[in-house]
Amino acid sequence: MELVGLLSFLVFFLTLSGIYAVMALGLNVQWGFSGQFNIGIAGFWAVGSYTAAILTTPESPFHLGGFGWPFLPSALVAALLAAVIALLIGLICVNLRTDYLAIATIGIGEIIRLVLKNEEWLTNGVRGIPAIPRPFSGLGRELEALLFLGLVVATILVVYALVERARRSPWGRVQRAIRENEPAALAAGKNVLRFRLEAFVLGAAIMGFGGALYAHFAGFISPEAFDPLFATFLVWVMLIAGGSGNNIGAVLGAFAIWALWSGTQFMTAFLPIEWAARAGAVRVLLVGLLLQVILITRPEGLLPERPPRPAVRD
């Protein structure tokens, strides 16, 4: 019994960190490769989650739905929609200075949150969308959870293979060149705007897919779940801790930080009872302090970026 409980907790833990790993890989494309500062992760995450929820849930009088799609097509549409939104935003903002883009992306996240909260016909507002079907349902709780974990792991592997290939390709080299010396890349005749837009959109699509995974995992989503603080901040800490620019680092960072985050939950369990309501804040505080320590002592992360050797010396 004890063992089963432990195992099911382990599966739960691995699944959720795996979803974060997908997010961190998406952010790595935007930030690690291309140097674009996105603080609107929660927004793309939410778009992915809501798209998947609306496409797969049974008909409901409270929100748009009743399409009854299976997982994969709906998740792909979720990624596509996140990508389209990123494209629209990117066409306007992607060529801005890093800090300006960052400010613009909080705005995007905020507007997406407002829409989710207020357009009840679409999202059921603050009450959220329940009863999002799980893939593999009807096979029993344990097996279902295990298979879902397999799905998440498969997603990580596919996304990793994709972005690692992109990183080593000429496309990845141009991204690095633009990040490190934009004027030189411009002078070399590279279409900087286009390359940055591609990275931004690709990263957002990955986040959208991750959001779909999350919706099916959680079974219920509401605007509360996409607190910018939580979603965006944790993904950032994961990528920085793991090593931005390094895809294995991104995945590793996601698991390590989620383990730490879960660990702080056990720690706060020992807090006096009157602190129970504040446990969440204590945990955020600890992770916030951890981020500062990493930034000051090891800003390159656990696994620093290793540029692939150029195929041809120039």
């Binding site: 140097g35 500062f37 603080i39 890093t98 800090d99 960052a102 603080l229 901040f233 950032w236 800490v237 920085i240 602190w275 504040r278 969440g280 804040a281 204590v282 945990r283 955020v284 505080l285 992770v287 916030g288 302090l289 981020l291 500062q292 930034l295 800003p299």
Partner: peptide, 22 residues
Amino acid sequence: SPVILLISSFGLALILRSLIQI
């Protein structure tokens, strides 16, 4: 680089907010 400061200030925002909440 200024971006590191930016990330740091983002983390600081959460530190301050959680302290206030605590």
